[in-house]
């Protein structure tokens, strides 16, 4: 067994002392593996990702647990070690490249600067590498685009430029925070395919945070579904799409418009809304919205229960949950 690329154990992140944004996340990534973290706003997916870069302000947030990336303990790093770690071991791409790129420097200058900060390279060498990166992310006429400012590029080009910047110091791990959400459909698929190709070519490990199951399936080997700060179901993309076991995952799949039986029929919506993270219920946080919830669900937090090879669900009712998938059992009996 080789050393995992990322190992997160019992990660807890609390904001302002009360908001438990992440509440015990365990996640392991093998080298070269792509895991998608799926969840709705407030599920803790982005918070988990930012914790891996230690981006949360230490004064207003508390991060507990252990995170090991490429053998390095992330929480124990000094500021100096952290500066080396960010960029060279782990790099991150964001939803909005305009906010992540510096508007007053050309994209090429920014890449050159990042390379020279981490490595001993002459300006010419760094520039040559930047050009190579631009070719790698398939930016047309890369030579000219290196000298463009971020605002002079179109949305898709900016996203490619940000990926090039992230890859500048040959990181082992790429963290992607909703990188395709703001893009148009025809551009989104280009970026998804690019990420998939780069991953294969460079052997990257990627955590891909998204709220879009479709985008996750296009790039991820495994999918982890988050709800109220925890991973409620985890498995290979195939297992999760074909045989979901957590009622929340099942609900997400069934409420999708393309899954509707016929035009004009009602969608199988999950009733209610996500819980307030400052006042989490004692039991399973999904219990108030769950059609299968029984008393023990409301009493204790369910542990991860194995339901197949490499497939776990934090649900004590996985024995009956597949019945939710059949169209006969519409969730009309949902608790009010």
């Amino acid at each position: 067994m080789t050393q995992p690329a990322i190992e997160i154990r019992n990660l807890r992140v609390t904001f302002a002392g009360v908001v438990r944004a992440v509440d015990g996340v365990d996640l392991t990534l093998a080298p070269g593996e792509v895991v998608a973290l799926i969840g709705e706003s407030g599920s803790g997916k982005s918070v988990t990702l930012r914790s891996l870069m230690r981006l949360h302000p230490p004064r207003r947030s508390k991060v507990e647990g252990t995170m090991t990336v490429a053998g390095q303990d992330v929480l124990a790093m000094s500021q100096r070690a952290l500066a080396d770690y960010r960029g060279a071991t782990v790099a991150m791409i964001f939803q909005e490249p305009l906010l992540a790129l510096d508007p007053v420097y050309t994209v090429g200058e920014q890449i050159v600067e990042v390379i020279r900060r981490h490595e001993k390279a002459s300006k010419a060498e760094a520039r040559a590498r930047a050009l190579e990166l631009f070719q790698k992310v398939r930016i047309p006429s890369p030579e000219r685009r290196l000298d463009a400012y971020p605002h002079e590029m179109s949305g898709g080009m900016r996203q490619r430029a940000m990926i090039a910047l992230a890859l500048a110091c040959r990181p082992k791990v790429l963290l992607a925070d909703e990188p395709t959400t703001a893009l148009d459909a025809t551009v989104q698929i280009q970026i998804l395919l690019l990420l998939r190709d780069l991953q294969r070519e460079l052997g990257l490990s990627i955590i891909f945070v998204t709220h879009d199951l479709g985008a996750a399936v296009e790039v991820a080997d495994r999918i982890a579904v988050m709800y109220a700060g925890r991973i409620v179901e985890e498995g290979t993309a195939r297992d999760l799409i074909r045989g979901p076991r957590h009622p929340y995952t099942i609900g997400l799949l069934k409420s999708r418009a393309e899954g509707a039986l016929a035009k004009g029929s009602r969608l199988d919506a999950i009733p209610g809304s996500p819980p307030d993270l400052a006042h989490l219920p004692p039991g399973c946080p999904f219990a108030p919205r769950c059609p299968l919830a029984i008393d023990p669900c409301r009493a204790d937090r369910p542990p991860p229960i194995p339901v197949g090879p490499g497939h776990t669900a934090r649900c004590i009712r996985t024995d009956v949950s597949p019945t939710l998938l059949s169209p006969a059992s519409r969730s009309d009996a949902a608790p009010a």
């Binding site: 179109s154 898709g156 148009d184 025809t186 551009v187 698929i189 479709g214 985008a215 399936v217």
Partner: peptide, 19 residues
């Protein structure tokens, strides 16, 4: 361009290039 939602039938070629 719509993601396929089928892990065995992922999109292999983007239907359009550029923005």
């Amino acid at each position: 361009s719509m993601p396929s939602l089928d892990p065995d039938n992922r999109t292999e070629v983007a239907p359009l290039a550029g923005d």
